[in-house]
Structures are given as structure tokens and as C-alpha cells.
Design a protein around this nucleic acid. Structure first.
Length: 271
DNA sequence: CTAGGGGTAAAT
DNA sequence: ATTTACCCCTAG
């Protein structure tokens, strides 16, 4: 009854990811028909693609064997006004506003002409923005999608996020409000685990090109968004999601600061 | 056709 | 026992 079992090859997975990046989540039939991927996926069906993506997405979230754990209880949210929720939305305003707050910087960075003979500016920023917008339209602000995008577009790889396994109820819970401030303004603090990562990545960013930095920053923002969205659906893992969101946001923030501090853009944004 | 809930069964 | 691939069914 069950099919013999045919493990997905890396090529197939790559094709699927590329297909999702190109056509969007859910366009299984389109992806399948695309001559670009049909060569690799000719054995798979649209349903297979869907299922594979489902498994992929699930794993990317650490939610082990799918929502089997807790599915019945879905308390929380539905009252985005002012809930007495422990976490949820107190820190940085989420969603679109955060994105648009960050986007302009990347745009401005992109607009600033590089020293003439520089390489052709591969407006990565634009691509990222497009991707994020597409994701929002499709309502699929998913880490998997973001990861796929980055993976396909660049050689960047979103960490398998194994750090999630740990359930530290310290960071967000013990200190409400903008704890991330300590991450931004300061750097010599007894920060949470996020510090090490942010610091490390930040160091890399200094030697990165503007495009690369923008890409990483965008990714971080996207991750923050995704984390928040997930938190809305699953208050269960809210702490994890929020912690991740904080880390990503802090990282994005720091990245942005670094970018601005380094180049001091001439603000060519239609002044 | 797609989303997504559920199930079977093969690998590990 | 868990993970992973496939299948099936139902509502849009």
C-alpha cells in the first residue's frame, strides 16, 4: 500500500526549494511543469512536493514529529489589542512596520552608487524585498521559505537551528520590555546566548560587502517576523520563538548600525 | 488544484 | 520509537 519508499535526493530537494523560490509556496503543479525542475522532479507528483515541503517546514521549526504534540490546545492571541499575555508583542512592534522600518536602509544602500568600477550591483536587496513581499502575500512567512530563498539565491545557509532544542526560560521571560537594548547599545554585557552569535556574525559583517550584509540583515528580520508569526499560532513555544525573534532583531539592528556607521551613505534617497 | 488533517509503512 | 515518504480524503 505504501509506496516502496524513495528517499528524496539532494537534487530533488534543491529543485523543490528553487521551485518554491521561483514560483512561490504552493505552486506545486507550476514547479513541476517548469522545465527547469521537471528534469529532476519528473518522478514526483504535486502532492509529493506538498508533502515534502510540509516535512521540510516542520523540521525546520524543531517541531519534531509534526504538531502531534499539542494541537488541541490553541489558547492565546486573537486579541492583538492589549492582552495580558506574558510576551507576545511587548518588544519591538512586529509585522510590517518593522520590515518597512528596515527596508529603506537597504534601499538607500542599494541606491548609493559604488565606486564606479565596482562590480555590477546585483541588487540583492531588491530580490530580498521581493521575496519577503511575496512571502507575505502568500501568507507564508516561513523560515523554510526564507531558508530556501537564501540557499538558492546565495550560498548562505540558515543554521539548522538546533539551538532551539534548549528551553531556557530566562531571556524573554525574566526581563520584559526591551531587553534587546542591551544588545544594541552595549556589547560588553552578560548577554544571553544570543550575544555570542550576534557578535560573531557581526564581526563577519564588518568584512562583508554591503549586499551581503543587507542580505543577512534581511534574513534576520525575516526570521524575526516568522518567529513572531509562529508565536501567534503556538503560544506553547512562544518563549523560543520570541527569543529567536529578539536575537534576529538584535542582529538586524546591529547590522544596520554597522552598515550606516561604516559607509555613512550620502542619503541619495530622493532627497 | 491546493491545504491540511489523518493514516500506512519503510527506513533508521 | 522516530523520521520520512506516500497515500487518501475533504473542504475550498
Amino acid at each position: 500500500m505504501g509506496a516502496p519508499k524513495q528517499k528524496w535526493t539532494s537534487e530533488e530537494e534543491a529543485a523543490l526549494k528553487a521551485g518554491v523560490v521561483k514560483h512561490g509556496v504552493g505552486k506545486w503543479r507550476t514547479i513541476l511543469k517548469d522545465p527547469e525542475f521537471s528534469g529532476v522532479l519528473y518522478l514526483r507528483s504535486n502532492v509529493d512536493l506538498k508533502d515534502k515541503w510540509r516535512n521540510l517546514s516542520v523540521m525546520a521549526n524543531g517541531w519534531s514529529s509534526r504538531e502531534k504534540s499539542r494541537l488541541a490546545i490553541r489558547r492565546v492571541h486573537q486579541a492583538p489589542k492589549h492582552d495580558e499575555n506574558p510576551f507576545a508583542v511587548p518588544p519591538f512592534t512586529p509585522s510590517d512596520e518593522d520590515i518597512v522600518d528596515v527596508k529603506p536602509i537597504q534601499v538607500s544602500r542599494e541606491v548609493v552608487p559604488f565606486s564606479g568600477p565596482k562590480r555590477s550591483i546585483v541588487r540583492l536587496d531588491n530580490l530580498i524585498m521581493e521575496a519577503i513581499t511575496t512571502l507575505k502575500e502568500t501568507g507564508g512567512s516561513n523560515k523554510t521559505t526564507i531558508a530556501a530563498f537564501i540557499e538558492v539565491k546565495r550560498r548562505y545557509r540558515i543554521a539548522p537551528t538546533p539551538a532551539y532544542s534548549d528551553r531556557r526560560r530566562s531571556s524573554s521571560l525574566l526581563m520584559d520590555g526591551r531587553q534587546k537594548a542591551s544588545l544594541r547599545g552595549d556589547k560588553e554585557e552578560t548577554n544571553v546566548l544570543t550575544k555570542s552569535q550576534v557578535d560573531l556574525e557581526l564581526a563577519k559583517i564588518r568584512s562583508m560587502s554591503a549586499q551581503e550584509a543587507a542580505a543577512v540583515a534581511a534574513r534576520a528580520v525575516a526570521e524575526a517576523e516568522a518567529a513572531i508569526a509562529e508565536a501567534e499560532e503556538a503560544a506553547r513555544e512562544a518563549e523560543t520563538a520570541e527569543a529567536d525573534a529578539e536575537a534576529a532583531q538584535a542582529f538586524a539592528d546591529a547590522a544596520m548600525k554597522t552598515l550606516k556607521g561604516r559607509n555613512t551613505p550620502k542619503m541619495m534617497i530622493h532627497a
